[in-house]
Amino acid sequence: MSAPSFTAAGFLRGARRSLAVAAGLAPFGLVVGVLAAGKGLSLAETGLMSGLVFAGASQILALDLWTHPAPVLAASFAAFAVNLRMALMGPALAPWLERLAGWRLWGNLFLLVDHGFALAIAEGRRGERDGGFLFGAGFALWCAWLACSLAGHLLGTTLHPPRGHPLFFAALAAFVSLLVPLWRGRHDALPWLAAAAVALPVARLAPHGAWHVLAAALAGGLVGAGLETRRGR
């Protein structure tokens, strides 16, 4: 392929596309900030965590078990368990990443996150292969994430919407909305059903961490590839 592998135009396209999804990130980021303030983390520490870890669910889980002094091993393990799903995203993005090296590759790996990943996969199916798109999408989401968690810290405990407040639904709505561009057609139906069928009991058995997401991705992948192999025969 002769398409350029990393352009500024691609960066802008990605950034613009992902700002649309940032709305789903905002309430989540605010929660991280509020939680961090509640656990006595300073504004600088909150910013450092959001900037370096940049993975909401793992931050919430770790902050939930935060003590003084900080639980270094438990927090690190929580991050690993929740973010293991990301180990499946890099390989799925191989057609993009294989053409990159140095900071462009490492930058994209560092900024890899669910929303940007879904956008890149959906756009990739329409022919987008510009590593700048992936980087732009991740970078815009990273900025939004940092801004929202810092804002959450500043608001501190003054803003404390109760659990179950519809504002938090925005986080789920973001994931629901990303399903639409990811749906390719009827051959996705059985793999998606398999993913749901596996996710439900796993979420019940292991409510902490994101094992159900990992299990669903593997189950859907196995069923999809199995069906494809059978069709190919």
Binding site: D114, L200, A203, A219
Partner: peptide, 13 residues
């Protein structure tokens, strides 16, 4: 199939 299934894994539970 991983991307779609992964997000189903978030949403279904």
């Amino acid at each position: 199939y991983v991307p779609g299934a992964l997000f189903v894994g978030y949403v279904a539970p």
